[in-house]
Design a protein around this nucleic acid. Structure first.
Ligand SMILES: [Mn+2]
Ligand SMILES: [Mn+2]
Ligand SMILES: [Zn+2]
Ligand SMILES: [Zn+2]
Lengths: 138, 138
DNA sequence: CTTGTAAATGCAAATCACTCGCATTTGTCA
DNA sequence: TGACAAATGCGAGTGATTTGCATTTACAAG
């Protein structure tokens, strides 16, 4: 039995979730993905292994994995949501408006300033998303 | 003729847009709004003046005003988009996850750091949205 | 102030991403 | 090796937003 499979299965158990092929498949796909796929794309990839997976389960599973803190959902403008495995470091996303590509951006300084600002207003951050639409300079 | 009406009409003309009652109405509503209304709410407010306005026109008009840079659209998670008149100063939004209220947050420092970071990656920012989901501390 | 004409609007039907109901299958724990 | 609740596949529903088309309107000309 591969180590990775065991790890992911354990991550699901630790989250109090049952270990199903669909959950392992989607979690694994997102761990390995270098891009930020949406539900349709994940369905296609999951079906390469098991062609009986349904779109409804993809959506249900993604919601559950997000709830469990194992993955993150990116709500974009005018296009279906994309997903990524939970990153180790907090980071923002830049969408290249010409290619659609998503680039990750991290700044510990921005995170700190934002946190202080929000707390100064009497709030605690539950989650945050920064989406930058940008164009490549030439 | 009120000065405001003239101003808004001129803003539309300057953007190369025809001046219609619906556009003036929505633009005016957003200039005066202290909250961040969605399309449904704007339709209700617009109908208080002219009960023949349609939801389709509200959506078409909001898209046009946004394209013209006169208003801004906020894409939230799991709820219809909200709108605001184009703010003078760039700012982020905090959504109180308990009340649904939207709070504005401005930090010139964050804007500067982010701009430098993005330019360092060879991009220019076209627009950006930061959405913070937060809970009031007690 | 009329008129021609393209653009804007209202209405209803269509889209699209996502969700749900339900019969069937599967994971977990005796 | 069952019992049984939870998960899944499938198809039908939802809700926000968009679109086709007939009608109205803004506005440039005359
Ligand atoms: Mn797609
Ligand atoms: Mn509403
Ligand atoms: Zn990311
Ligand atoms: Zn704002």
């Amino acid at each position: 039995m591969p180590a990775e499979t065991t790890d992911l299965a354990q991550a699901l158990r630790d989250a109090g979730l049952r270990v199903t092929h669909q959950r392992l498949s989607l979690l694994s796909l997102l761990m390995d993905a270098s891009d930020h796929p949406n539900a349709d794309e994940l369905l296609a990839r999951a079906r390469a292994e098991d062609d009986s997976v349904s779109l409804a389960t993809v959506y249900r599973t993604l919601a559950i994995l997000e709830e469990a803190g194992l993955i993150r959902k990116l709500t974009l403008e005018n296009e279906p949501a994309r997903f990524e495995s939970m990153p180790l470091a907090e980071h923002d996303h830049l969408v290249d408006i010409d290619s659609g590509e998503v680039v990750e951006i991290a700044s510990e300084e921005i995170n700190r300033i934002r946190k202080d600002l929000v707390e100064g207003l009497g709030y605690e951050i539950v989650s945050h998303t920064t989406l930058i639409r940008a164009r490549k300079l030439r």
